[in-house]
Structures are given as C-alpha cells and as structure tokens.
Design a protein around this nucleic acid. Sequence first.
DNA 1: TTACATTTGTTCGTATGTATA
DNA 2: TTATACATACGAACAAATGTA
Lengths: 249, 249
Amino acid sequence: MRISYDTNMHELSVGATLYKSVKRQILAGLASGEWKPGEVIPAEKRLSQQFGVSIGTLRKAIDELVAENILIRHQGRGTFVAMQSRDHHLFHFFSVVRQDGERASPSVSLVQFSKGKADKEGCERLGISSTAKVFRLTNTLSLQGAAVQIDEITLPEALFAGLTEAQLRNRPSTLYSLYQVDFGLNVIRISERIRAALASAAQARLLNVKPHSALLETHRTAFSYNNQPIEYRVSYLNTAHHEFAPREV
Amino acid sequence: MRISYDTNMHELSVGATLYKSVKRQILAGLASGEWKPGEVIPAEKRLSQQFGVSIGTLRKAIDELVAENILIRHQGRGTFVAMQSRDHHLFHFFSVVRQDGERASPSVSLVQFSKGKADKEGCERLGISSTAKVFRLTNTLSLQGAAVQIDEITLPEALFAGLTEAQLRNRPSTLYSLYQVDFGLNVIRISERIRAALASAAQARLLNVKPHSALLETHRTAFSYNNQPIEYRVSYLNTAHHEFAPREV
DNA sequence: TTACATTTGTTCGTATGTATA
DNA sequence: TTATACATACGAACAAATGTA
C-alpha cells in the first residue's frame, strides 16, 4: 500500500503534527461551547471521519486530553467533557486548612463590586490592554464563622459581559461554577505565587487583626482551555489559625 | 488476516492486559538492576521482539513509564532510565523563584549544627518520642548572592547515625542526595504547610531585613518509602524579591 | 433473560517522518 | 552519507463494557 501524506489537507502549519491539530480542534469545540461539561462528545469513529484522520490519530489526540483531565472516557458509553462540580472546584483550588489539618468549605461574602481598569500586573496576567474594562470584586472568606481571607478578583469584561452584583450575590455555588454555567468559562488550571505581607488598615479591619500583622499574599491566575487566562485574584490570608496547604509532591 | 490471541503465551493472569504485563516486566528489569539509572535500554524494536509483542504494544507500555518519569525518551538516541540527580531534587522540591519568575539554584551555608531533642511539633511530624535524640541544623540559602531563606532542619538520630558537621559542609550535592548516598534514605514525597510570620531579631540579622518584617514560614515533612518521615524542616523566606511557587494544578 | 448494536479498549502490523550519532 | 532509533500516521480485527429492544 502506498500512503501519501498531503499535509495541506490538514492545516498542520502551527503544531506540526496531525494529532496536535486534531487536539486543538477538539479544544476549540470545547471552548466554543459546542460540547458542554457533562455532555458526551461524538464517537471516535465519527470524529475520525469528521476530522478526516484515522482512528488511531484521533485516539492519540483524545489520549492527551484525557491525561489532562479535560475529557473522560467510559468504555461502552462514550467520551465525556469533564465536569467541575462544586466539590471539585472547592477541594481542587481551595488550599486553606485549619492548623490542626481540618478542611472546611468557606462561606463567601461580597464586600465590593465595581467596573474599572485593571492594575499593571492584572493586565499582564490576563493578557489585556491597560485600557481594557474589567470587573473588580472583593470577597471575604469565613471559616468557622470568622473571616480569614480577602479575595480581590479581577475579571475581563470582554469575557464576563453583563455580570451583575445580584448574579454574584445570588449564585447557588462556587464562583468558578458561575463562570462555567453563566459564561461558559471552565477553569481547568491555576498558577499561584505566594508572598508574606503586612496587613493594611483596611485589611486588618476586614480580618479583625491588628494592622501590620503578617498575612499570606497569594497571586493567582486562572486559566481555561487553550491557556486562556480568565481570572486574576490576589488573596490575603490570616494565618493565625489557618495555613496554606500546597499539593503534596 | 486472522489474529488469534493466545493469552497464556504472555502471562496475563494479573494485570489483565498485555501492555501492562510488558510494563511490569520492564519495571522488573529496572528493579533487578539489569538497566541502571542513566543507561539506555534496548531499542523498541528489539524489546518488542524480546517480549513477543508488537511495537505498538511495547510503545504503550513505555508511554506509561515515561509519563511516570521512570523512563525518558530521546528521539534518535534511545530510551533512558531516569536519574534522580541534583537537578531533580532541586527543581522537584525547591519552590522559590525570583519575582520575575526566574528560577535559580540556591547556594547553601551551614550556620549551626547540634545534637539534642526535637520540639513538640518535630516529634509529632517525625513520629518519634519526645526523648529521642535528633540532629538539628540551620542553613541559609542564598540566591543571586543574597541570603533569602533560613532552613531549620530536624533529623532523627536513629536514621542518620554518625552524621557529622564535616559531612554536611563537604557534601558535593544537595542535602537530599546526601541522605540517599550516605544513609540510603530516598525522599520521594514532601508535605508542606505555609504561614506568614514576623521576623525575629535573629532571623532579621541572617536575612538582612528589619525585625518584624513579614516572612513566609513553611513547615515541611519529607517522607521516604512506606510513608516513613525522615526529615522535618521549618523555613523562613524573605519574599521582598522572591516568591513561593506551588505546583500548578 | 437474551440478543444485539454501539462505544471504547487492546493488539496487531506497516509505512513514513525526523532526530541523532 | 548512512544507519539507527524514536515519532507519527494509517487501518484492521477483536475484546470488553454498556444500554436497549
């Protein structure tokens, strides 16, 4: 058998290999909302025909997406778009524990909501221009009744068009679930950097500590498919009775 | 073409699938020392013949071992047994980066070495009695010439019998390499908790900061096989120009 | 309960591309 | 240049799990 590869047929210009191209096309389908979390995507055979590649190539593309926890395969049932439930978001992305090791889910309270421009670092992390409009919100997180963390969150207006304060106050689940359900934005990865800082007067008031207490300052960028940054947040944690617990390695 | 699968030929009794069986056989070769860290293993074609499987099946077995960082493939050169080198320990367990994101390896300086008893938390983390003897050492870590972190390390004497100050000062590589080479203790997992703290006078002097500056305080327990704790350390990081970078999730 | 269609999982073998020594 | 080794791609056959008629 003679096999000839006509690369032009498959638009291989960027990622160089065919299966990477297929992977990108599947990711595009996810990003566009064509296939939503929890739903089943078309069968391998059908997708391979649709993309004009062999079943093996299609499987290799899906293999990588499964390894990245973006798709989930069930033999005999199909391949599904991974769903990030409240619990997933909570225990996957919330790393604060009590000093005795006890984990609990925080109760969130919105203290400020406005529209404006992002600061310099926010623009960089979100990959937006310094003139772009953003939503800015401030939350306090309470554990066992006491406020222990302040979250200052920046969201690009281009991605969260129409977001309202009421929407935030009335949301039934986590913020990341709201991103998913109301805006089709799935947080699949976060990148964090942690520093120590001294509490400002305003922070001290919110957290009920003395000014110039030591706080844990975390800068987080949250990404969706295709490494698109969708949220930038700076958090301030009172570590008098709680700690930050990174993933074990 | 007629394909018949004679499962008995491949000893599939345990892992159920052929490639899993091949994977186990490769792992056995590694454990037996047939192929040593840093060495190249036989070519895929040769291994597939040796195990009596197709090249695709052999590749699938190796795929998983590569994903687990047990083997490393180099196109055109061969497949190598992964080595846990200085760099592995460094970049796997050292999470401090400069605020511009630049990573560098720290230069370590021993400032104190003694034998005594562990504090309460040290005893708990190491699972030893409050009367057990331990080694206590204090290091400063410098990046770009300036001290940025203090490490206070506690080691059970039962595991590190005969450890000397000279041994620590003259070690050619990382501390964890010394554990491995001189005491046969492999650090395979660490558990950390992070707080913010105010610098004491002594800490301020070592890190060249003002007393009551904010420092990042990390409590780490290092484990060997079978979840045996072998080291407890408390670190104090000056985050004026550096940050703690957890694994991305 | 059984039979069947559908879907993913595993295995085979071959051809060709790309990187390295 | 040549040989070797891994990387990508094709397609076929069969196995196992699942849901449904």
